[in-house]
């Protein structure tokens, strides 16, 4: 799996695709997978990130999600944002079809 998190990223969240339908999901603090990044468990520092990955393994083994990986996020009063263009697009949907993807389905997903 490609590395999507910059080395030395401060805040990270964990994402994957759901096995049955491929939809983008994020690991929450209570080990569920949510379709909204705003529900994601955001960790600080390298070790906490590794721990997130560790927590996901059971659901990979349980065939709930595939290809989990960490990515960098920023964090402010408006909520959680992905740091890269790529993860922003995964979080929101195609920039050329604003009527599709999470931007169309979930409230509060930023553009």
């Amino acid at each position: 799996m490609a590395q999507h998190s910059r080395k030395g990223a401060q805040f990270q969240a964990l994402t994957a695709n759901r096995l049955a339908d491929g939809i983008v999901v994020y690991l929450t603090a209570d080990n569920r997978w949510s379709e909204s990044l705003q529900d994601a468990d955001v960790t600080e520092g390298k070790e906490a990130g590794e721990a997130l990955l560790g927590r996901a393994q059971a659901t990979v083994d349980g065939n709930i999600v595939v290809e989990p990986y960490l990515f960098e996020v920023t964090h402010n009063e408006n909520g959680i944002r992905a740091a890269s263009v790529r993860e922003t697009i995964r979080q929101a949907g195609p920039t050329v079809r604003l009527d599709l993807g999470k931007q169309a389905e979930l409230p509060g997903v930023h553009r």
Partner: peptide
Amino acid sequence: MNGVYLQLHAY
């Protein structure tokens, strides 16, 4: 082999 990929948003 059946043309199914996993992409950014979905299959």
